[in-house]
């Protein structure tokens, strides 16, 4: 796994795990690999993984069971809010970038709609290949 070395690694590890929770690759209640295994999988420092997991436990997205390991929360609404949060973050970036190109709010909506439509057509044509 390649990380951006300008951004704290523990934040990037959180993003990776959040992403897996939101997409369902990690299911509610599922056990995470052991800390050292995660460090190996991601090729990062064990303490950095520990720190990432620690903050996710504090935020309530992970539940730590003493002696048994760390588990994804079974609180589905909580995972839904996480998804909302990730979507918001992506939209905020796009919105900011398009505003920087002097697009009005209406123009942004129109161009996003047009993009999605064109993109959908492309994907359909791929399916028909």
């Amino acid at each position: 796994m390649e990380f951006d070395d300008k951004v704290p690694i523990y934040l990037q590890i959180k993003q990776v795990i959040y992403h897996e929770m939101v997409t369902g690759k990690l299911k509610p209640g599922e056990q995470l690999p052991a800390v050292r295994q995660l460090a190996l999988d991601l090729t990062v420092n064990v303490n950095t993984v520990q720190r990432a997991l620690g903050t996710m436990i504090a935020e309530g997205f992970l539940v730590s069971q003493r002696g048994r390991g760390n588990f994804v929360t079974e609180d589905q609404p909580k995972i839904a809010t996480l998804k909302q949060q990730l979507v918001q973050e992506q939209l905020a970036t796009v919105y900011h970038e398009l505003h920087a190109l002097n697009l009005s709010d209406d123009e942004i909506i129109t161009s996003v709609q047009r993009y999605v439509q064109q993109r959908g057509n492309q994907d359909d044509s791929h399916l028909n290949d």
Binding site: D4, D5, K6, V7, P8, I9
Partner: peptide
């Protein structure tokens, strides 16, 4: 290293 990334927004290299 995490302090360098966090506070200086720099990669270690």
């Amino acid at each position: 290293t995490e302090t360098i990334r966090d506070q200086k927004h720099m990669d270690i290299e």
